[in-house]
């Protein structure tokens, strides 16, 4: 408790500093970050939909690569039916994970296999455990990463495919990795994707670009699972409103024609 309140005091102090030091708060110059290239995503545009084949492959990349460090806590296994998995497949995916449930009639907590209604089981029981396992860096939850960055999908794709040798003038300390698309260029995450890091069941070749592409499609769906329903409804609503506006305008003209102008 003492530590917690100390941390809160520290947070409040940080806030005070942030509030009073606006004038000098710009830690990062514009030249530090490389702008991601714009990609042609299937989900873009007012008629854009989820590329289910890509998103299914992306799930595989998430489960086999990303999920060793990153959680996906806002998404439930049952949501995977959106991507075209049937209920048996969803049950099978969920059953690979254990969750703590309880207490049972004896008052004991117990482990059981996850079921479709459970949220994705994360790799760590809490943030402190995650940081302890990652040199103090906290791997962010991936549920909303696409929405949490400007140009989210392009940024994440660029980040995953953008690991290169550091230029001679950049010193990369131990535990850091060079990535020009990351703010400050030094990222705690080591390059996660390598050729043939996963074996796709549909025969797609698992290049770095392909896996990054697929996992971004998956993460986009995970961040905005309502997207297809939203755009479909939006098309009808906006079309209705345009017609309504036109009719109301015509009625207004007719009504006002009774008056002199």
């Amino acid at each position: 408790m003492g530590i917690v309140s100390n941390l809160r005091l520290a947070a409040a102090a940080t806030g005070l500093i942030a509030a009073t030091m606006f004038v000098s708060t710009t830690a990062f110059g514009a030249g530090d970050v490389k702008d991601p290239d714009s990609q042609d995503w299937h989900f873009e545009g007012i008629f854009g939909t989820v590329d289910r084949a890509a998103a299914q492959r992306g799930l595989q990349v998430y489960l086999e690569v990303c999920s060793s460090c990153h959680g996906l806590k806002q998404v439930a296994y049952r949501n995977l039916t959106d991507l075209g998995f049937n209920e048996e497949e969803v049950k099978a995916i969920a059953a690979e994970f254990d969750v703590v449930d309880g207490p049972n009639d004896e008052g004991e907590m117990f482990d059981r296999s996850a079921i479709p209604s459970d949220k994705f089981v994360g790799p760590f029981p809490n943030n402190a455990a995650a940081q302890a396992a990652n040199n103090g860096a906290l791997p962010p939850d991936l549920s909303l990463q696409v929405k949490a960055h400007i140009g989210g999908p392009d940024y994440i794709y660029a980040l995953l495919t953008g690991y290169t040798e550091a230029p001679a003038d950049v010193e990369v300390p131990a535990g850091a990795n060079y990535n020009p698309y990351f703010r400050g260029s030094l990222i705690a995450m080591a390059q996660p994707l390598w050729p043939d890091g996963v074996t796709y069941s549909d025969g797609t070749e698992a290049t770095i670009d392909q896996m990054a592409w697929d996992v971004v499609n998956f993460m986009q769906w995970a961040a905005a699972p309502e997207m297809e329903e939203r755009k479909k409804m939006g098309f009808k609503v906006v079309l209705f409103l345009i017609i309504l506006s036109a009719i109301l305008y015509a009625a207004k003209r007719k009504m006002w024609s009774n008056l002199d102008h």
Binding site: L7, A11, A18, T26, G152
Partner: peptide, 16 residues
């Protein structure tokens, strides 16, 4: 966009 990250009292955003 950053408001899609949960509040973290120890982690100040670069640009508020």
């Amino acid at each position: 966009p950053e408001n899609y990250l949960e509040a973290a009292p120890l982690n100040t955003p670069a640009h508020i």
